[in-house]
Amino acid sequence: MKIKVLQNILNANDQIACQNQQLLDRNKVLAINIMSSPGAGKTSFILQTIKRLKDKVKIAVIEGDIASTIDADRISEEGLPVVQINTGGACHLDANMLSNALDSLPLENVELLLIENVGNLVCPAEFKIGTHKSMMLLSTPEGNDKPQKYPLMFTESAVIVINKIDLMPLLDFDFTAFQRAVTGLNPGAKIFQVSCKTGDGIQKWVSWLESQLRDH
């Protein structure tokens, strides 16, 4: 006997993601899922954002890594609440991991939650975790052909940040081709160009983030 099922395999994950978002909404927290390849500069980007916003906005950070607390240690020097999730081999954060991490944060005292996903351009894009916005960071040495190679990452991200623009003169990164591919796939995507090393472009991103916080 054949039984028709038609059920999404990630249904259980998506339900928890939905509960996470409800919990964040009850506490009026704006949560952002930050994704990229390993080494694109997620932690530096979070640090730059914190530096410019921490006197105005109550920020908390969740760090996702396969192992180690190196990133969480860097963030905690800023004196903010930070939770490290070690996925123990898993290549992405899922909704359940975020749910557990949210339990250890003082959410009633948080306005902005920055979540650093595991460095990977494939799996994080497939798993909803319950954030309000997804963003991806691409560093210029990775090349401008990433939208064609990892399309899902670019369709799922509302914000795309190009990091390490200070290296542009040394590289063949074709920004026009990149922008054409991104806006073709995701016409609503917001694109920022920054250098976490020099601080170039960071203020533009932070101003945009502040406008999102006001509207949230």
């Binding site: 006997m1 039984i3 099922v5 038609l6 059920q7 806006t183 016409p187």
Partner: peptide, 30 residues
């Protein structure tokens, strides 16, 4: 491969309409 422009009108403005499916269609039981 890397050719995402429309072969008909050459525009680079596409939406993904298939390839994201991820579900259990049916089971067969006794």
């Amino acid at each position: 491969n890397s050719l995402w422009s429309c072969p008909q009108c050459n525009e680079w403005d596409v939406e993904i309409i298939a390839g994201r499916e991820f579900y259990v269609d049916s089971i067969e039981v006794e």
